[in-house]
Design a binder for these strands. Structure first.
Lengths: 244, 244
DNA sequence: TTTGATGTTTGGTCATACCAAAGCAGGTTT
DNA sequence: AAACCTGCTTTGGTATGACCAAACATCAAA
């Protein structure tokens, strides 16, 4: 074959985009439309080269893009497999950008404010909608939290666990993913803070108050307790890091 | 120089990862830490080849990854420039994954439910915190909405505009980005629905009710109006698309 | 000073080659 | 027959080298 440059690609090239982009869109479409389902492997790179009439460079860049966007899972020497879509992976793929946004002035505060807003909404909802099982799960988490007051490491995990229950209650898969994102992105601040049994005890008391509000079906009380709890947490952050 | 395979890279290779990944992390770190600021161009590919002792293949894959993750903006024949980080770009980069999640059963419903939760929280907050300017902005948006009742196309935009004001009021840059994400991802359903002046009028009335609740500093009324409004919107979606 | 021709830079693509590890097939040992 | 080597094949990762087209820089001509 000649040198190059004749647009041999069989993929849509109308957009005038780069060949790699077109190939990316081609497979992204195959995946989104379900032609390629979860767990299905992509064809070998050399096969795509033939079927699409492009160089391996282009194929690799396209596959790379699919992997970077979280559509496929590419491990060395294995065919890339279509990834199970989840909101968790969605948050993972933006980790780098978010990291940049958080180091900016007010970045962490902005994120934390949305957390307050969402958790306030969650506890209000819990106060009206919580089923018996939900209350039980919350109580279990609360008791685990209480038992961990002397062990700051364990307390941190049970603390997270208590809040996690709130995110699970609406049974909306988006919410636990949001919670995971919060804990991941706010961890740098949170984990570096001094943790003492006294602090733990105060936080446990706050959790208990939230639980009580939900148990009593008192939306306003539950929300107030939660806002006080998170506002206090933020103050602790500010004491440790100053204005960020 | 010999054939290949001696790990010449000056970037950290300790992780055992691929050279391209290491290079990606290298520049991602430079960007996140601010060594490379917004608008700064990356070195030419051929220069990176020399400074890091890797092939251009590797360099290209790394740069590709940076572009895919939204860290740099790469246009053909231009040096990639460090992109201004924003929550909007964060949402854009997950567009493909989210598209897959939304076509799944209950996907749109889950997303819409979170929207209800957030907007309910927003109007409650607005009812207590809204400043004079905020109220004015909301009123302006409401009047524009009213004036567009006969023009369904324009009504859709002013409708979105009214809700947008709610997201702007807390002055948290994350929230408008969230709103934009909602409108983008829910647009396929929303834009295909039959739009009639009668429907528009009903929606306007709902907006007016929300506005009134905020104006009267009545959290519960504002929230109730909003929930009724969005629940009604969802019913319209279901009438059009059935169970999705 | 403006305009134009020209060589240079730079990202995009192609082609080829080699490596290392994973998979596979067939034969050997126990 | 089951477990264990052994060597060939597959497949992604990397390295080179080359060429194109558009953007850019430079400098001579008008």
């Amino acid at each position: 074959m000649g040198k190059a440059q004749e647009p041999v690609s069989s993929v849509e090239n109308a957009g005038g985009g780069r060949a790699a982009d077109d190939l990316f869109r081609h497979y992204a479409e195959m995946i989104t439309s379900g032609v390629l389902g979860e767990g299905d492997p992509l064809p070998p790179e050399r096969e795509i080269v033939e079927t699409h009439g492009v160089s391996r460079t282009v194929v690799r860049e396209a596959v790379l893009a699919l992997a970077n966007k979280g559509l496929v899972d590419a491990r060395p020497r294995f065919r890339p497999v279509v990834r199970k879509p989840s909101f968790d992976t969605a948050f993972e793929t933006v980790d780098n950008v978010v990291a940049r946004l958080l180091i900016q002035p007010g970045g962490v505060k902005n994120l934390f404010d949305t957390r307050i807003m969402i958790e306030a909404a969650l506890v209000r909802q819990a106060a009206t909608d919580a089923k018996k099982d939900d209350i039980a799960a919350l109580k279990t988490a609360l008791e685990a939290n209480k038992a961990a007051i002397e062990d700051s490491e364990l307390f941190y995990r049970t603390d997270t666990g208590f809040h996690a229950v709130l995110y699970q209650m609406p049974r909306n898969p988006i919410l636990p993913a949001v919670h995971k994102a919060y804990t991941t992105w706010l961890a740098p601040q949170w984990s570096k803070m001094p943790r003492l049994p006294d602090r733990n005890r105060a936080n446990f008391e706050a959790h208990a108050e939230i639980y009580q509000g939900i148990l009593m079906r008192d939306q306003d009380a539950a929300e107030a307790a939660l806002r006080a709890h998170l506002a206090n947490a933020w103050n602790q952050v500010r004491e440790t890091f100053g204005d960020i």
